[in-house]
Amino acid sequence: MQNKNLKKGVKIMILGLTGILLAAVIIVYLASGGFLKAQYLEPWQKSYSDIFDDPRIKLAAHGILAANGHNMQPWNIKLDTDKNVFYLFADSERLTKEVDPYARQTMITQGTFLEYVRVAGERLGYKADITFFPDGEYDEQNLENSMNTKPVAKITITKTEPKSSSLYDYMFLPDTNRGAYSKKELTPEEIKQLHAILTDSDMTLEIFQDEDNKKNLGNYAIVGAKIESGIHRINQESANVFRANEYQKNKYRYGFSVEGQGTTAIMKHVLQGIITLFPSINNEKNSADLYVKSTQTGVDNTSGYAMIITKDNSRTEQVKCGMLYSKLILTAHSLGLVMQPPSQVLEEYPEMSEQYTKIHKDYAPKGGTIQMFFRIGQPTQKFPQSMRRDVMDIIMQ
Rank of each mutant, 00 (worst) to 15 (best):
A244Y: 10
A221G: 01
K320S: 07
Y247I: 02
F256L: 12
A306H: 04
R315A: 15
T276S: 15
D300H: 06
A306T: 10
I274F: 12
Y254C: 08
G322R: 13
I227F: 00
K320F: 08
L271Q: 11
V299I: 01
I274E: 15
S353V: 08
H269V: 09
Q261Y: 15
Y252L: 12
Q296Y: 03
S257Y: 04
Y325H: 02
S294Q: 06
L328E: 00
I281M: 14
Y349C: 04
T331Y: 11
T310V: 14
I222H: 00
S287I: 06
S280H: 03
E246F: 08
Y220F: 11
S280N: 07
L346G: 13
Q344V: 09
S343N: 14
S334A: 11
N286K: 05
N250E: 12
I222V: 02
N250W: 10
N219A: 01
S326T: 13
M352D: 10
S314V: 01
A225V: 00
V258H: 14
T264L: 14
T310G: 15
A239W: 08
Q248G: 00
L337N: 11
P350I: 02
L271D: 00
Q261D: 11
K249T: 05
N283R: 00
A239G: 04
A288G: 14
E351D: 15
I231R: 03
E259D: 02
N282G: 11
E354F: 05
A265D: 15
F278M: 11
R243A: 02
H232L: 12
N282D: 15
G304P: 08
N235I: 05
E246C: 06
Q340N: 13
K226Y: 00
V270M: 13
R253L: 07
S303F: 01
